[in-house]
Each structure stands twice: as structure tokens, then as C-alpha cells.
Design a protein around this nucleic acid. Structure first.
Length: 789
DNA sequence: CTCAAGAGCCTTTTT
DNA sequence: GGCTCTTGAG
């Protein structure tokens, strides 16, 4: 019995192909991670490849971590020497060693999108551009797509000399790049761009890595952009024992799951892989091990409407399964309410665990209303994305201090903190400092050092110098090897009085911020615990600038997961809800009104991704009206609903949930009609009649905490009283009525004794020794334990 | 220089 | 609806 016996024929073929380019077209749920990990095992075990010679690239840290763990379980050794990492981390690792060849310092800072925005704002001001006419975002997007296509500022300027708009972009791009370099900073796109630049201009460095990475594997290849293609092409060229050039490049992807075009992903990388590498071996993985036949059929039908794709048909030996449920509601409130009720009911009936559910939506803004309804029912949930922890004001402030200390050239960070907390340094002073720095070609921080000699600053200088000396003092301590970044963090808190100020504020919001600061401190401690060789400030800052929201998803918690369809790629759940299936929401308004037909195709691929996340049951929901940007919008059901054959759908009427909130939905009788897609009534029959109401009839409801929910206005008060949502951690405010040693009763597990009661992250954690069910760890908020006397 | 209130903008998706 | 920026008064 070998580890390869469990693979199907195509999977095995892919695993055993070890020489020359390999394209694995892996449909959703076809076991592509299995193939990748088994292939690594095969190379190590059977071909005796040195783990040192293997590079596996992913897009998220989560995927990288999973891959490493799975290789470990397969072969039990050697995986720590395989380079398994994201594209971005890989590039950073290379650049940290060699970027001095491009004239940057090796302690460069990584700018996130907020930093980019601040920088761009400065540039717009510098060029005296009308901020009403020129948005930072327009420039940033233009620059980003140039970088993703490996177009430098010089090249950009050369390409369109006659076009005045492009000329302006070129000027801004040049200045932007100049300032990044001055700040010794790179943005996300630079990480890839500069690595390719480094390789192209330093053949010795390239040869070094080519020689090392003799076997390269790439996950989610359909989402690579042009720079990533170049990078792979440069790296995956080595010479074999016979002096022949070989490309041991194995890419795995699914063109139907390409959903990052907006971010520069180039779907032709995968579509044209075979022509880029003529001796490519192509293997299709079409057997799906994840979903029911019904779900898979629906997915196949939807995606078949796309033109630009490699023909393939997923099949499964799994059961037929239940029909897909589609429900159209009057409003987004009812939609959210229904979903929350359904989940609660199934949970209480013992039919499912909370962790079995994923609620997917097109835009992050849609999560709010779902969260509200889940909170009201005490359903624990976990939100992926939305507000990234590292984007919070207090976190960014403290990180800016650390970044300033690490790299004084990082102007954006220095400017961020120079008057935070308030030191009486105003806009005039900052402007003068900025002018001075630009005039003299020095960094903003160096200008601060010279503050007293700068004309026009006057009294301001006396405020600036204490700031400079504070930074200098802390910086000097770093030279002591005993001084850890944890000491540094404490010192910053102490010296700036940042936390004290929040404590003094004593508001709910301030408390929340303090909690976040403590959380950041925990992250530093964890980092120091896990750091292998490098526990420097630089390494810490690097690690946190490269985390994605999805990296922190803990699938062991028993919670419902809420996330965007994009974040859901690569995951699977027994029960999936896709909410907001409406024209103008999904597909988005932007795509519908775009003149590029590829936009709607990408949206359809996103729908395909969503559908194929579900293992057993898929629920699609839509609302006739929903609040967007403070306005009520009316939408017709999504075209994607129409693309699912009617015989796979079970349309339920939302009416039934009004009379009895916990009653089962009633199925409308549906006659199978294979040839005719079912069309849901829309006033004029057109697929897009979304309208926007700009009238003010959503006013005058500020006194009603339930908003314009007609159910509430009609008096159907089956909900718990509304509580203003401050954080998702509010359950900690209600300590349980029982303590250690108390006898308690649980609905399902019966009677038991509390053995432990601790304050968890979101809620109190209770350990109970049940008389019959054994020891269980529960969350107090929804375990509904009853104390018995 | 700082704070509070009002105006205006926004939303697609993210490493 | 909510966040950020602008404005005007201390």
C-alpha cells in the first residue's frame, strides 16, 4: 500500500510526470492540492530530488502553510527544506538579500494600499492637480496595471507621447516611483516587479536561483499576472545533465476560477501555457470529489455561458443531492433574517454545526446586515476581510512608529505619527518641513532634525525636536541585542503615552482600541516565539505587511463564516448561502455597464467559484430592494439564477417565514423542463431593470432601530430587542450566571459540572464535565447552559 | 492649533 | 448609512 494508491489515473499521471513543463487543469474540488503535495512527495521519495531544489508558490500564506503541513504528513520529513511560500514573500526574501543592486536599502519598507493612497495624495498636492478631477485611486490603478504588465515609468512615458492624459499619468508614475525610492519603500506590485528587474539585470543572481529551484510548482496559476509569468519564466530554466535546457515548471489552475483580472491577473497565462512551452504535458482533472451532482450540474451550466475558456466538464460519483434552493425576498432585511433563522433552526434541531455554513456575498458592505441578524440570535460567526486588523488607526499608528525606527526614510510613516498623539505640530509646520525636504532632496525625518534652521517654522521647531529625540533615543536602544521588539513596543507605548491617552478617554471606542493594541502585542509575542533565525524588527514588519485576511481564518472554531466570494476561493463548506443574487449586485453594477464583455465573464467565473464551494446544499437568495450607500436600490434577480436549469432549482416562498419564523419553507411545485431555463418574473422581461431611487423616502426612520423593515413596522416582533452593535465581542459583557463547581444543564448534552470558566477572545469559555456526554468545551454565549440547584 | 459639525463621497472584488 | 475631509469658531 503506497501513498499513491488513493489517486485516480489522471492524478497519478500528474504526480509521476517529473521532467519538463506540466499543465494541470484542475476543476473545482478535483483534488489539486492532493496532486501537488503527492507530487512533491514523489519527487523526494522516488526521484530522490533534494528538498532544497523544490519551490512551491501559492497566493496566500494559508495555502502555503497547508501545503507544507500536508507534505509533512505524507512523507514525515524534509518539508522544512522545501521553499513553500507566496509569490510576494518569495520576492521579499530575494530582495532583502539583493535589492542593494537596484539602489535600494535592504531594510526597505513595504507600503500597503493606505500608504499608497497617502503618498499619492502628496503627489497630487505637489503637482497642484485639482483633487476633484484627479482621484488618487485612478492614478494608483493605472500605475498598478502598468507595473503588473512590467511597464516602467520610462517605458510608460515613451509608449504614449501624444496622449495628454497618459502624459499626466506618466508624470505622476515617475514621481510616485521616485518618492518610493526616496522613502526606501516598495509597494505590493514592486515586490514582484523589482524581483524581475533584479533578475534581468543581474544574471549572476538569477543563475544562483535557477540553479537552486530545479522543480517549481505553482498553485492557482490562473491568477498570475504578467510579471509573475516573467518571474516564473526566468526562474524555471535550468540545464540538465546532458546540457539541455529544461523547464521543470508545473502549474496547477482552473481558467474557470480566474477571478483576479481587476488585480492584473492575466488569464492568457493559463490559456496559452501550451504555446509558451511547446513540450507541455497537459492533464485534466475533471472528477469532482466535493459536491453533489446537482450542485455540479448547476455550476457546469452557469460556466458554459462563457466563451473564453478551455472546454471541460466536471463530473462526480457523488449523490444527486437536494435541489438548490432559491428564494427571492422583498428586502435585504428579510433575506438576512431568513438565513439567520434557517441556520439557528437547523442548529437547534441538531442537524448541523455552525462551522458547516458559509455565507458568501459579492461586496463586503453586504456583511453588515447579516451580522446584525446573526448577533440578534446569538449565532457565533467569523468575518473574513472587511476591516483588516492591520488597517485600524491605532495599529497603523503604532506600526508607523516601528517603521520610522526601522527606516527613517519612510516619509509616509513619519508624517503619520509626527503629531500623533497631539504634540502641537500643525499643518503649517508639516508643510514647511515637507517643502524643505523636497528642496534639499532629504527625507522628511531628516528635515525634522533640522527644524530649528528652517525659515518660517519658528516656534514649531521647539515641538519637533522632542519628537526627534524621542525617536533617536528609542532607535539607539535597538543596537543592544538583548533589546527585543517587544521591549521596543512597550517603550513606544510608554514614551508616546499612546495607551494612557486612550485610557483617559474612557469611552467604549477607546477601550476597543486598547484591546487592539494588546492584540498587537500578542502578535509580537507570537512572532518572537515562532521566529526561527530572524526576530528583527524588519522581519516582524515584513511578516505583518504580507498577511492576507484569509490567512487568519481558523476553521476549527464552531462558527458561521462570512466572506466575499473572492475570499472563498479554495475553501469548501457543507452548506453555502450565496446572498444578494441580483442584477447590479452580482453581477455588479460596474460589470453590467462595462463595454468589455470579459467583465461579465469574470463575474460568471466568480459565480462558478461560489457554487462549487458547496458540498451538500446550496442556497441562493435575492432581495427586491436593498440599501446601498444610503439609498434604496431595486434590482431584478441575477442572470446567473436564470442560467441554472429550472429542474435543479427549488424555489421557496419567503411568505411562510412571516407567519412562523421558524417554519420550514414551502416548496413551489416545479415540473422539470430541461430545455427551458426558468425565468423569474420581471416587469419588462429584460434582464437588467435595476433602478435607483434617489427620493428621500428612507428618511424619518432614524428613531426606528429596525430601519425600514416592514415586518418590524407591522409589529412582528419575534426578535430579541435590538442592541446597537459595537463590536462582535459584546458577549463578554454578560458573564454567565454559573461558576466553577456549579451543576448545569445543556439542551443536548444533559447535566454536568462546570470545571473551568475562562474569558476567551469573544466570549466566556466553559469546560463542562457532562454526566453522560463527557467533557466538553463550550462558549457560554450560545451553549445556553442552565444552572440547576 | 484643535475640535466639532457639516458636506460630500462612496463600493466591487485584494496579494 | 458611515467614513473622511473641509470648514469655521475657540
Amino acid at each position: 500500500m503506497s501513498i499513491y494508491d488513493t489517486l485516480n489515473r489522471q492524478q497519478l499521471e500528474a504526480v509521476q510526470h517529473n521532467e519538463g513543463p506540466l499543465l494541470i487543469l484542475a476543476g473545482a474540488g478535483s483534488g489539486k492540492t492532493r496532486v501537488l503535495t503527492h507530487r512533491i512527495a514523489y519527487l523526494l521519495d522516488e526521484i530522490n530530488v533534494n528538498p532544497w531544489n523544490i519551490l512551491a508558490l501559492t497566493f496566500t500564506n494559508k495555502a502555503a502553510k497547508e501545503m507544507r503541513e500536508r507534505v509533512d504528513t505524507l512523507i514525515g520529513f524534509g518539508s522544512e527544506n522545501i521553499w513553500v511560500s507566496t509569490f510576494h514573500s518569495t520576492c521579499v526574501r530575494i530582495l532583502r538579500r539583493y535589492i542593494d543592486r537596484l539602489g535600494y536599502g535592504n531594510n526597505f519598507t513595504i507600503y500597503d494600499s493606505d500608504d499608497q493612497k497617502s503618498l499619492m495624495r502628496d503627489i497630487i498636492k505637489y503637482f497642484n492637480l485639482d483633487p476633484k478631477k484627479y482621484k488618487e485611486k485612478t492614478f494608483i490603478n493605472e500605475i498598478s496595471s502598468a507595473k503588473n504588465s512590467y511597464i516602467s515609468p520610462e517605458q510608460y512615458a515613451m509608449e504614449n507621447p501624444g496622449d495628454p492624459a497618459k502624459k499626466k499619468y506618466a508624470k505622476v508614475y515617475t514621481e510616485y516611483q521616485h518618492r518610493l525610492k526616496q522613502s526606501n519603500a516598495l509597494d505590493f506590485d514592486d515586490l514582484l516587479f523589482k524581483t524581475v528587474e533584479l533578475f534581468e539585470n543581474n544574471k549572476d543572481v538569477l543563475a544562483n536561483y535557477q540553479n537552486r529551484f530545479r522543480y517549481i510548482m505553482v498553485d492557482e496559476y490562473q491568477d498570475t499576472n504578467t510579471v509573475q509569468f516573467k518571474l516564473l519564466h526566468l526562474l524555471a530554466t535550468s540545464t540538465n545533465d546532458f546540457g539541455e535546457t529544461v523547464h521543470n515548471l508545473c502549474v496547477v489552475g482552473d481558467d474557470d476560477q480566474s477571478i483576479y483580472r481587476f488585480r492584473g491577473a492575466n488569464i492568457y497565462n493559463i490559456l496559452n501555457f501550451e504555446s509558451s512551452y511547446p513540450d507541455t504535458k497537459t492533464i485534466r482533472l475533471e472528477q469532482n470529489y466535493r459536491s453533489t451532482k446537482t450542485i455540479l450540474d448547476a455550476a457546469n451550466q452557469v460556466i458554459s455561458n462563457n466563451t473564453e475558456r478551455k472546454e471541460k466538464k466536471l463530473w462526480t460519483e457523488n449523490q444527486e443531492g437536494d435541489p438548490i434552493t432559491y428564494t427571492l425576498f422583498d428586502s435585504a432585511y428579510e433575506e438576512a433574517e431568513y438565513i439567520a433563522n434557517r441556520i439557528l433552526q437547523d442548529f437547534e434541531d441538531g442537524l448541523c454545526n455552525y462551522r458547516d455554513y458559509a455565507l458568501l456575498y459579492r461586496t463586503n458592505a453586504q456583511s453588515r446586515i447579516l451580522e446584525e441578524k446573526l448577533i440578534q440570535r446569538n449565532i457565533p460567526y467569523r468575518l473574513v476581510g472587511a476591516i483588516n486588523f492591520y488597517q485600524r488607526k491605532e495599529i497603523k499608528d503604532l506600526l508607523a512608529y516601528m517603521r520610522t525606527i526601522n527606516n527613517g526614510q519612510d516619509d509616509i510613516s513619519v508624517k503619520r505619527i509626527i503629531n500623533v498623539p497631539k504634540r502641537g505640530i500643525g499643518l503649517t509646520t508639516i508643510d514647511r518641513l515637507m517643502e524643505h525636504s523636497i528642496h534639499n532632496g532629504i527625507s522628511f525625518y531628516d528635515a525634522c532634525k533640522n527644524a530649528e534652521y528652517i525659515p518660517g517654522i519658528g516656534r514649531g521647531a521647539s515641538k519637533v525636536s522632542p519628537f526627534v529625540s524621542m525617536i533617536e533615543i528609542i532607535k539607539s536602544k535597538l543596537s543592544n541585542p538583548e533589546y527585543s521588539i517587544l521591549d521596543l513596543f512597550d517603550e513606544i507605548l510608554e514614551a508616546t503615552g499612546y495607551e494612557d491617552e486612550l485610557v483617559a478617554e474612557n469611552t467604549e471606542e477607546a477601550k476597543n482600541r486598547i484591546e487592539n493594541i494588546h492584540e498587537l502585542k500578542n502578535k509580537i509575542i507570537t512572532f518572537l516565539e515562532n521566529a526561527k533565525e530572524d526576530n528583527s524588527l524588519n522581519a516582524f514588519l515584513e511578516e505583518i505587511s504580507l498577511v492576507a485576511d484569509i490567512d487568519n481564518l481558523d476553521e476549527t472554531d464552531n462558527t458561521v463564516t462570512l466572506m466575499t466570494l473572492h475570499s472563498a476561493k479554495g475553501l469548501e463548506y457543507p452548506y453555502v448561502y450565496i446572498c444578494g443574487m441580483e442584477e447590479g449586485v452580482f453581477p455588479s453594477y460596474m460589470c453590467i455597464h462595462s463595454d468589455d464583455p470579459m467583465d461579465i465573464e469574470e463575474e460568471r467565473r466568480l459565480c462558478y467559484v461560489g457554487i462549487t464551494r458547496a458540498r451538500e446544499k446550496l442556497f441562493l437568495t435575492a432581495a427586491r430592494q436593498r440599501m446601498q450607500n444610503g439609498e434604496i436600490h431595486f434590482h431584478s434577480p441575477s442572470r446567473f439564477i436564470n442560467e441554472i436549469p429550472r429542474y435543479l432549482l427549488n424555489q421557496t416562498t419567503p411568505k411562510s417565514i412571516y407567519s412562523n419564523p421558524f417554519a420550514n419553507t414551502v416548496s413551489a411545485p416545479i415540473t422539470p423542463q430541461k430545455d427551458k431555463p426558468f425565468r423569474y418574473t420581471s416587469a419588462n422581461g429584460s434582464s437588467d431593470f435595476s433602478a435607483i431611487s434617489r427620493t428621500g423616502f428612507n428618511r424619518n426612520r432614524s428613531s426606528n432601530p429596525f430601519g425600514d423593515n416592514p415586518m418590524i413596522q407591522k409589529g412582528f416582533h419575534f426578535e430579541k430587542p435590538y442592541q446597537a452593535k459595537t463590536t462582535t465581542t459584546s458577549m463578554l459583557d454578560n458573564p454567565p450566571s454559573y461558576g466553577v463547581g456549579d451543576k448545569v444543564k445543556h439542551d443536548k448534552f444533559g447535566e454536568g459540572t462546570v470545571t473551568k470558566l475562562t474569558k476567551g477572545k469573544k466570549d466566556y469559555e466553559v469546560c463542562v464535565e457532562f454526566d453522560t456526554a463527557g467533557a466538553k468545551k463550550l462558549l457560554a454565549g450560545f451553549a445556553k447552559l442552565e444552572k440547576i440547584h
